[in-house]
Design a binder for these strands. Structure first.
Length: 407
RNA sequence: GGGGGAAUUCCCGAGUGGCCAAAGGGGACAGACUGUAAAUCUGCUGUCUACGACUUCGGUGGUUCGAAUCCACCUUCCCCCA
């Protein structure tokens, strides 16, 4: 199976500007393609992960990836799919985020000699002169068309600043620049980027009379139509310090039945034929599929060792057994004890399982707290130092949160 | 530049002098049921030394016995006219 066909089979292809041309281009390994990453945080997250995988797949098929870091566009902020304006970031923050991105990407993409290259659009965007830019490309953009673009739709009601309106022009300019300087003939991106990308191919056609191509990948949505990779606490990060490998594993271990196969197909590197066989799985087999998904992705992001460890910990906790080795642990100090004892409420807050005393109180009252597998019945319950000796005390909040407390 | 409107707890959104820690919904969390899924039902959702106390309704001052509610100024946003 050739690469284009594989992308289709995995359900990754959302929209393309010219299917026959694009198929030919990437199947023959002649594409020099770019994907842009805006440095809006100090770590990549699951959304970026899809793009990284895509780059990797295309690179394996002989194409040349160009990673574009949006150090310049970061000054503006992409309004696509947003209902409010991004807060403006300081140049220092942007630079810091760019550095973090680079570090994480090296894990996925081969930046060796003659392989992938990384560029930062700050290098050319920040040098632009307003009037020159207007004269150069301004005439190529139709405000009428821009206003019709899907990515601005939501903002037409809530308000859109001129600053953000220009994002599309900057992104188009990037493509135009990369086309001229790096022979970049293709752009990939999330489906929400479609209008921005089209305007880039348009610009190249108008300015140079040549064809460049664009293709978007399907956004990873769950069965409820929400973007995946978000939790109540924010994004699922690739940085192990922001989302631990265990949490990362658990996120995928817990996806809904209807989403498992889709995720395996789109995100893992398992052969398509193998995945096709899993299509008929149901019931407990789906539960197995979730393990595969979680393991494969954790392996890609954090390495095989971490993946195995997360899996082991997970099985230990949920399937019985007592592997407490890798769960979050808090060591108490004498100061946290009242004499020889500590109350449950204080204990829960001390180890970060609860944000406040009140929350702890509620949890206990509702029967959501277990200490060494015994339900804590009273909010006045106390533990003495001997309870934390040795392996420590295993606290369980609800069904999925575990915490080990030692001295 | 002129005129009008808005800012409420995680989000949406009621509340227009005391009965307001603030309706309702969503989300989150917990319980039951389960497969670490979904659906459903129940509880719960400011803080605390907890049947009471304290701090919150964009910001700063003011009026009042008493303010989320009234007044002044400021900040931000939206709409209409130019």
């Amino acid at each position: 199976m050739e690469i284009y066909e594989e992308l289709v089979a995995r359900g990754l292809v959302a929209q393309v500007t010219d299917e026959p041309e694009i198929r030919e281009l990437i199947n023959s390994g002649k594409a020099v393609f770019y994907i842009g990453f805006d440095p809006t945080a100090d770590s990549l997250h699951v959304g970026h992960f899809m793009a990284l995988c895509l780059m990797k797949r295309l690179q394996m098929a002989g194409n040349r990836p160009v990673v574009l870091i949006g150090g310049g566009t970061g000054y503006i902020g992409d309004p696509s799919g947003r209902s409010d304006m991004r807060s403006v970031m300081t140049p220092e923050t942007i630079q810091h985020n760019c550095d973090c991105f680079l570090h994480q990407m090296e894990r996925f993409i081969d930046f060796g000699e003659g392989k992938a290259i990384m560029v930062n659009n700050a290098d050319w965007l920040l040098k632009l002169n307003y009037v020159d830019l207007l004269r150069d490309v301004g005439a190529c953009f139709s405000v009428n068309n821009m206003l019709r673009a899907e990515c601005y739709k939501q903002r037409m009601e809530k308000g859109l600043s001129f600053l953000e309106f220009n994002y599309m022009i900057m992104q188009s300019y990037d493509f135009y620049h990369l086309y001229q300087h790096y022979g970049c003939n293709m752009q990939f991106g999330g489906d929400d980027q479609w209008s921005n990308m089209l305007s880039g191919t348009d610009l190249i056609r108008r300015k140079l009379g040549e064809n460049a191509y664009a293709m978007t990948i399907t956004l990873l949505m769950n069965a409820e139509g929400k973007k995946m990779g978000k939790t109540a606490n924010g994004a699922v990060w690739l940085d192990p310090n922001k989302t631990s490998p265990f949490e990362f594993y658990q996120y995928w271990r817990n996806v809904g039945d209807n989403d498992v196969l889709k995720c395996i197909r789109m995100l893992t590197f398992l052969p398509v034929e193998e995945i096709d066989k899993m299509d008929s799985w149901e019931g407990s087999q789906l539960n197995r599929a979730k393990e595969i998904l979680a393991f494969e992705l954790t392996k890609l992001v954090h390495g095989e060792d971490e993946a195995a460890r997360a899996e082991e910990t997970s099985r230990g906790l949920f399937a019985g057994g007592g592997n407490t080795e890798h769960m979050p642990t808090t060591a108490l100090t004498d100061a946290q004890f009242d004499g020889d004892t500590i109350g449950v409420l204080n204990l829960l807050v001390a180890c970060g399982l609860c944000a406040s005393n009140g929350e702890a109180r509620r949890l206990v009252q509702q029967g959501g707290i277990l200490a060494n597998d015994k339900k804590v019945e009273e909010i006045g319950a106390t533990f003495s130092k001997s309870d934390f000796a040795g392996e420590g005390l295993l606290l369980k909040k609800g069904k999925k949160s575990y915490h080990r407390v030692t001295l």
